[in-house]
């Protein structure tokens, strides 16, 4: 399938999903759907580095929270630019505020992408495991920075008040419908990016790193540069997923934005779905995301985290290739009589 065809199909599917969700006429569907879509973006982003290159990132929550907090910071700045910026610079900026969510998404992506690039530059030259450990610690440190930064609310958190509705051309959408649409577009974007990478020179480069980095390096693959691209890209997508969060929950505090569930889910979903192609994270995110939404309502939110942890461990031990791998094996067995 050509890339353009895939993008077209993804857009059509996205539009159908959006139309069906609106037809449900139930805001809860949108609120729950937003979270599932958010996990599709996070899982796909994680898989670009984790699945394609084989480098584990435990700091999804950190990248995600960077996106969320850049929105909080800009929201605060936009509420009163003259107070924080001086002179003509402030006057030039005032007409720009309030920034629309797509702009905030791009900025959140840039911030997290830069963090990813910096992290990668410091740690990726060494053994891969150091990168994993550093990302684990990154979440703790960025959280410390945010807690000590009063401008975005410190440990008390910050309120972001969202408008009731928004006009997109002739149509007027309620705010949750709008946020849902933004996240849906991000999910489509993430999936298209992931699939495009898989079938490009970049993706083959990533695969050589995953299979044997030393051999790749020896045959002239610029491994460090490729790894940095993957880290920045993956971080940027995570930040983009985080940027709409303040408008979704209305109140952001460090412990929630840096929550471990983001990190665990974004690892568990690709691992359970399958890490080798873009389908895996999608399947994993839809299954686990929906399961968690149901479990949160019916059982409890702690138990549903336990389910994710147990599933993650069970899948990496029993079915290392994930659901996609299991299905592929079955098809292959059927083809060979």
């Amino acid at each position: 399938m050509r890339a353009a065809t895939f993008v077209f199909i993804a857009l059509v599917v996205g539009a159908i999903v959006f139309a069906l969700s609106l037809l449900a006429r139930n805001e809860y569907v949108l609120f729950a759907g937003f979270v599932v879509l958010q996990y599709i973006v996070l899982a796909t982003a994680w898989n670009i580095l984790g699945g394609y290159c084989g480098y584990v990132n435990f700091g999804t929550a950190a990248f995600f929270a960077m996106g969320a907090y850049s929105t909080v910071a800009l929201h605060k700045l936009g509420a009163n630019p003259g107070r924080y910026l001086a002179g003509t610079f402030a006057e030039a900026l005032i007409p720009l505020f309030p920034l629309s969510i797509p702009v905030l998404v791009v900025i959140g992506g840039l911030v997290s992408g830069l963090v990813g690039f910096g992290m990668g530059y410091l740690t990726l030259r060494l053994r891969g495991v150091f990168f994993a450990i550093a990302t684990l610690a990154l979440a703790v440190v960025l959280q410390t920075l945010i807690i000590n930064w009063d401008f975005v609310g410190g440990s008390r958190g910050a309120y972001v008040i969202r408008p009731d509705s928004i006009a997109l051309g002739p149509v007027s959408l309620s705010y949750i419908e709008y946020l849902y649409l933004v996240m849906l577009s991000l999910a489509v974007l993430a999936l298209c990016v992931a699939r495009q990478i898989e079938r490009s020179r970049l993706g083959f480069g990533f695969a050589t790193i995953r299979d044997d980095e030393l051999a790749a390096e020896a045959s002239g693959v610029p491994t460090l540069r490729l790894k940095l691209i993957a880290t920045a890209l993956s971080g940027a997508l995570m930040g983009m997923a985080g940027a709409p969060l303040p408008y979704y929950i209305g109140y952001v505090e460090p412990a929630a934005a840096f929550g471990l569930p983001y990190a665990v889910n974004s690892i568990a979903m690709p691992m359970i779905g399958g890490t080798t192609s873009w389908v895996g994270p999608l399947i994993g995110a839809i299954l686990l995301g929906t399961l968690q939404q149901i479990a949160t309502v019916t059982i409890s939110s702690v138990v549903n985290l336990l389910i994710v942890g147990v599933l993650l461990v069970a899948f990496v031990i029993i079915a290392p290739k994930g659901i996609v791998g299991l299905l592929q094996d079955r098809w292959r067995a059927r083809l060979q009589p």
């Binding site: 984790g50 084989g54 584990v56 495991v129 568990a268 691992m271 702690v302 138990v303 336990l306 990496v316």
Partner: peptide, 26 residues
């Protein structure tokens, strides 16, 4: 034994870390 400790082994220990924490909370 399968030579998969880099990616899946890390995920395994991360899962253990998470399960222990959630169990203690429960």
């Amino acid at each position: 034994k399968r030579g998969e400790e880099a990616l899946r082994g890390l995920a395994f220990f991360f899962g253990l870390l998470f399960i222990t924490e959630v169990m203690l909370i429960l």
